[in-house]
């Protein structure tokens, strides 16, 4: 053993006892102070003022993590795709914003481009006239389960190319809400323009079911399920970070995978 790093203290037995007692007292005092500091720090953290359901220091770190990963999001970083025989059953796990008072026949998609007053309505055939993409990807719920599902629809990037004014620079964010605005999500535009982000109208080769968000839902495999909003009634481009249903309940705003 290295003697330099592992020195020895050799004294007569009386002084040795004293030296041991002195060191024990000193270091246990330091240890006690450190432990008290740790407990105090934890108490301070967990009781800090809340910011959207979490103590503000944790919220800040969540947001910082989000910015970090957002910078890393890349159109080449894809969720793996699977084959048809790997498709699994996707349960219905949320019905906020899917009230009974809804007429699919009268549905329209309201689009707001970020300039006050500049808005228009689209029909499902407008979305269906965009190039159709089909993919079999993993749908990851923030609860921890995940399911392989097939989706088909229009890429949000194609949608944006067609419907966002080409002359203007792209904004930072996009906000989507159900027709009753009970459920709403905020997305960074970078993730929304990812090639796997679809405005989906088909699931497993069939038209989307009502409980899964008919007539049009968002499928964004680079985000947790909570961002995959069903029954989209409104899409709004914006430069300020939009609100988000689950963010306000204490979850991460970015919620990216």
């Amino acid at each position: 053993m290295n003697k330099k790093r592992h020195p020895e203290i050799v004294l007569n037995s009386q002084d040795l006892k004293q030296e041991l007692r002195r060191r024990t007292r000193r270091d246990f005092l330091i240890a006690g102070l450190a432990a008290a500091g740790a407990v105090g720090g934890y108490e301070w953290l967990t009781h800090a003022k809340e910011d959207n359901g979490q103590p503000w220091p944790e919220r800040r770190v969540l947001d910082a993590n989000g910015r970090l990963w957002r910078a890393y999001v890349n159109n080449r970083h894809l969720m793996p795709s699977y084959s048809t025989d790997q498709i699994q059953y996707l349960k219905v796990n949320g019905d906020v914003g899917l009230g009974q008072d809804f007429d699919p026949g009268a549905w329209k998609l309201r689009v707001q481009t970020g300039v006050p007053g500049e808005q228009f309505d689209l029909h499902l055939f407008d979305i269906q006239s965009l190039p159709r993409y089909q993919m079999i990807t993993r749908f990851c719920c923030i609860e921890g389960w995940s399911v392989i599902t097939q989706w088909a629809g229009a890429r949000f990037s194609d949608f944006t190319k067609k419907y966002f004014p080409a002359a203007r620079p792209l904004p930072q964010y996009v906000y989507m809400a159900t027709p009753d605005e009970e459920y709403y999500v905020g997305l960074d535009l970078k993730s929304a323009l990812h090639p796997q982000t679809l405005l989906a109208y088909e699931q497993n080769g069939k038209p989307l079911e009502a409980a899964h968000g008919a007539p049009l839902r968002l499928v964004i495999p680079v985000k947790y399920g909570i961002k995959n909003i069903k029954r989209i009634g409104m899409i709004q481009y914006t430069d300020t970070r939009p609100g988000d249903y689950w963010y306000e309940e204490g979850y991460d705003w970015f919620a990216g995978l």
């Binding site: 970083h77 969720m79 793996p80 990851c140 995940s146 680079v222 995978l257």
Partner: peptide, 18 residues
């Protein structure tokens, strides 16, 4: 588990996300 899309190669090492 945290970033199975951004780090899909890493998730693949462990047999994917599950």
């Amino acid at each position: 588990i945290y970033k199975p899309a951004q780090l899909n190669w890493l998730a693949a090492w462990f047999g994917g996300y599950p």
